[in-house]
Design a protein around this nucleic acid. Sequence first.
RNA 1: GCCCCCAUAGUCUAGUGGCCUAGGACGUCACCCUUUCAAGGUGAAGAUCGCGGGUUCGAAUCCCGCUGGGGGUACCA
Length: 505
Amino acid sequence: MRVRFPPSPTGLLHVGGARTALYNWLFAYGQAKREGKPGQFIIRIEDTDRARYVPGAAEALLDILEWFGLTWDEGPDKGGPYGPYVQSERIEIYREHAEKLVESGHAYPCFCSPERLQKLREEQQARGLPPGYDRHCRNLPREEAAARVAAGEPHVIRFAMPREGETRIYDLIRGEIVFENAKLEDLVLLKSDGFPTYHLANVVDDHHMRVTHIMRGEEWIPTAPVHAQLYRAFGWEMPAIAHMPLILAPGGGKLSKRHGSTALEEFRAQGYLPEALMNYLALVGWSLDGVTEIFSKEDLLKVWSLERVSPSPATFDYKKLLWFNQYYINHIISLDDLTSRVVPFLAREGLADPAAADPSHPDFPRIREVVALFKDRLETLAQAPELMSYFLRDELEPYDPALLVPKKTEPAAVLDALVATLAILEEMDVADEAGVEARLRALAEERGLKAGQLFMPIRVAITGRDKSPGLFETMRVIGNERVRSRLAAAIELLRERVGAGIGSD
RNA sequence: GCCCCCAUAGUCUAGUGGCCUAGGACGUCACCCUUUCAAGGUGAAGAUCGCGGGUUCGAAUCCCGCUGGGGGUACCA
């Protein structure tokens, strides 16, 4: 079984496209192989729209697909027996095929100008008629049409759709869909610039590339009957076809920047793990049993099947994606792996050497120690620099001294307690977590403070924040020297406030 | 307007005629744990299975209509 993913290099890869690619990939490498059939996945670049072409987009598409975790047998970067896999390099093939259809009477040259078509549409709309080409040139005598083409008159090639009867499409996930031919249009097959439209190129390529199953987005359903008629006109067997449900934006309608990120590149930059994204995306429109939620790529290959893809559109849920990401960080990937993945994000903020992503790098163990404290606190990799900066820099960022004094606590009492804490820590090694904890709990008791009333000021003093990992592990990782100097600095800050008579509140 | 697709809680879904007093997950709320934040644990609220007709002894599950949502209607894919 051969499937394909044919992106158009007009921009970044969307989550919808990514899911379609994933499902095709799972069909070829999972389901097909389980059924004992060979499965191949091919990538084809559909760059037939010169106006929307974005240089570099094709390369970016392949790059992000690889990041996502997909692989392919044939494609523009690796060739294959049915190449080239870039449509702009196949124009000659499309032209020949269009000519064949003209000869067999299945297509015809159309000389209508864009202006005439525009006017036609406006008139139809004004009169409340369905807009569409009026098949003006379909009735031109063949000799006249041929002569005008020979004379070099600008034209397109249109498909001559049957005017009567109906076309039935058997969609693998929706069943039979019936279209009345009379309601379908004579679509353009070859544009006046000589490039094919999607309809021609797609059909010709799928046939010549031996594609057996077409799995594409639901937005293509309306053109499926035209494609079916094209296969018939060529005398080819049409591949099996399935239309994947659309992924909608939270408010309804198409997913767009307005709602948040939509491109895989954005999720990558925000520190989403490809594994988490794949797991989430697999579950938008597909489920195994309604209960199992965590699927590795290998799991999906074992259990995913087209039959269980839902026909109904789904809303993209950013919160659930975030949950998956956090779950993978917290519970699925190893500490070493997480450390390696976090380093590039730290490096971007100057908090680590980019080379430290390698476990053999001398900085790796130190960074891993910090990352360990955040393994169940990180939602995305991109949060790492902000969360971990006070471990990785010697200097603390300036903080509000008011944070040092918890509610319902006297600033003077806090000051005394911190002075005592510093005295204690000058005698102890923070590596002795349990010992430090026992000693400081005793101190709190001596001073008549609740543990939190002592621990929070210490936390703020050594981190500059009122949120951090456990206090004693935090001290251990920050180290004796920095803990002491930060405590001393906090004491100075507090002295100023107490001296100025500023109370807590 | 016309054509087409879809329809179980805010969201993703399980369910294919009786096992459903509709299951799971995200989110929300509460409690437990607790030095903060997380993670973890326990529990709760939340669905007249879009509405109305049928079919059937029996329907979330089958049929029809309606409504709602979505897609298409380009020399874009």
